[in-house]
Design a protein around this nucleic acid. Structure first.
Lengths: 128, 128
DNA sequence: AACCATAGGGAAAATTTTTTCCCTGTTGGT
DNA sequence: ACCAACAGGGAAAAAATTTTCCCTATGGTT
């Protein structure tokens, strides 16, 4: 297990939320589960860009936080499903809002990033 | 300048939002500016846990995205203020919602994380 | 026997992000 | 002359995260 060397500042709500959703793929995983893609193997298939190992790690993290829990069916071959806890469900509207804002503004952001030249372009710089 | 080796997947809105707010300190910086702490030195003072260099880098990133812009006053000593663009303003309610969710659920998350023991604690594990 | 699928993790490498250290300037105060 | 505050960045180290590789097991299929 990896041990942090610098303690985290998780006193404020913003930091907690960012911690929970902010990983590289966690929001996507949450979205999978919401849409009913609950089994690890199914999530792996949908997120084929991402190594299974990582998805497992994120799932575990979300389980640690208590956003999802694991249903282990006594079947052969092993069958596992991840489902939302109540708190997990409560974050879904937040995810929706992030998704919405991102979709509404991504073109603007791309455009700005491409055109951006530090301190030279008067479009970005406003001198008073 | 650092160059990415793995291209980012920024097609979906969720990824874009997480990219924009998801840095270690960006949400805090946004919150500073919103509360009127607009000058770099003032932000540095408030966020004394964080190296000025990083704050500058995040400010630049937010400027690149077009969430904030730089007002440079023709004064001596140099005076700079960062202000929100329209799109910057539009993200504030999103930040609020993240802040709110985090505050409402942080104790729950702390508790779960502390009590969590993978696959041994029946509180977390539900076998069907 | 060799392979598939299921679920999962340890170790180490690679990548990305954050941090520290030290530098560029300007102007004003002591 | 020296130190303060202002705004800012290059280089490299450190830390954190992500990725790859390879392993554990079970049981079914070819």
């Amino acid at each position: 297990m990896y041990e942090r060397k610098i303690p985290e500042l998780l006193d404020c709500g913003l930091a907690v939320s960012v911690k929970v959703i902010g990983g590289k793929w966690k929001a996507w995983i949450i979205d999978c589960i919401r849409r009913g893609v609950r089994r690890p193997s199914a999530i792996h298939k949908e997120m084929h860009e991402v190594a299974p190992r990582i998805i497992n790690m994120h799932l575990k993290e979300l389980e640690e936080y208590g956003l999802i829990y694991k249903k282990i069916y006594a079947e052969i071959p092993a069958r596992v499903e991840y489902c939302f806890t109540e708190v997990g469900i409560s974050i879904l509207p937040v995810v929706d809002i992030l998704e919405k804002w991102g979709n509404e503004n991504k073109e603007y952001i791309y455009r700005n990033k491409e055109n951006y030249q530090a301190d030279t372009c008067p479009f970005h710089r406003k001198t008073a």
